[in-house]
Simulated scan of single mutants.
Amino acid sequence: MPTTLITGASTGIGAVYARRFAARGHNLVLVARSAEKLGDLGAELRAAHDISVEIIAADLTDPAQLATVEARLRSGDAIDVLVNNAGAALLGPFAGADPARMAQLLSLNVTAPTLLASAAVGGMVKRGSGAIINIGSVVSFMPAVFPGIYAATKAYLLTFSQGLAAELGPKGVYVQAVLPAATRTDIWTKAGADLAKIPNLMEVDDLVDAALIGFDRRETVTIPPLGDAGLWDAFETARAILPSGLGGAPAERYRRSA
């Protein structure tokens, strides 16, 4: 039986991923801050699917607790799928933002998934199989609409995932970036947003089910609400072509002042 480790597993997207992978027959390692919520979810899934569920209560912004999860990825029973789902939002402009809150957001949205992926890939490459799912956001493409560093952290996850996919795909490790639009989770209320004022919210179950279809198709990037896949293909084609013509000399338009 494969084993999946999911961060931010106690509620929302992480909990639905746990239920879906349990239904697929995966043993689980569930990570979140609330041991009580994880315990309740673990008991539910053990009873429903006759799987093993390991609980790790950890705050991934705490280096010592993050190291505990890293150690689990490197040792013990092999982890076949890592779902980097834990994350937070920080609303408001960059100017005047609290440095301590920004540092905490960077720890959770950037440092934690990077180090957890690093801990997981050694065993996956050695076995020639495995998968990493990184939960990003469509705000990666909307920095002007979402000022501050939240969009930047999600842009990092997208680029990080694409780089990993290029490096690890030939070694048998599949990497998927999932980019939700606004989804009905408590990330927004924790950040101080009013869900009633956010249009076109996607339900969590719908999001995860769509993301898993992308997972089964082995998509590198899955954008569940995107109806026209050609738009993403065109974007990726332009992104890939752009650097090909860049040489070692300034472009003609930069050879003279305005």
Rank of each mutant, 00 (worst) to 15 (best):
T4I: 03
G8C: 06
I13K: 06
A18M: 14
V29M: 07
V31Y: 02
A35S: 12
A35W: 08
E36R: 05
G39R: 14
G42D: 09
A43V: 01
A47D: 10
A47E: 10
I51K: 15
S52A: 09
E54T: 11
I55Y: 06
I56H: 11
I56F: 12
I56Y: 08
A58V: 09
D59C: 10
D59N: 14
D59H: 13
D62G: 13
Q65E: 15
R72Y: 02
L73R: 02
L73P: 12
R74K: 13
S75V: 11
D80N: 11
V83T: 10
N85C: 12
A86Q: 13
G87E: 09
G92R: 07
P93N: 10
D98Q: 04
P99Q: 07
R101I: 02
L105T: 03
L106E: 13
A112H: 10
P113W: 10
P113H: 11
L115M: 12
L115K: 06
A117E: 08
G122T: 06
G123C: 03
K126M: 00
G128T: 02
I133T: 08
I133L: 15
V139N: 06
F141T: 07
P143Y: 09
Y156D: 05
Y156C: 10
F160V: 12
S161A: 15
G163Y: 13
A165Q: 13
A166N: 15
E167C: 08
E167D: 04
K171L: 11
Y174P: 06
P180F: 00
A182W: 07
W188T: 05
T189I: 14
T189Q: 14
G192M: 14
A196W: 03
A196Y: 04
P199R: 05
N200T: 01
L201I: 00
E203F: 00
D205W: 01
D205S: 05
L207A: 02
V208N: 08
G214T: 08
D216H: 01
R217P: 00
R218F: 07
R218T: 02
I223R: 00
D228I: 05
D233I: 07
F235A: 13
P250M: 08
S257K: 11
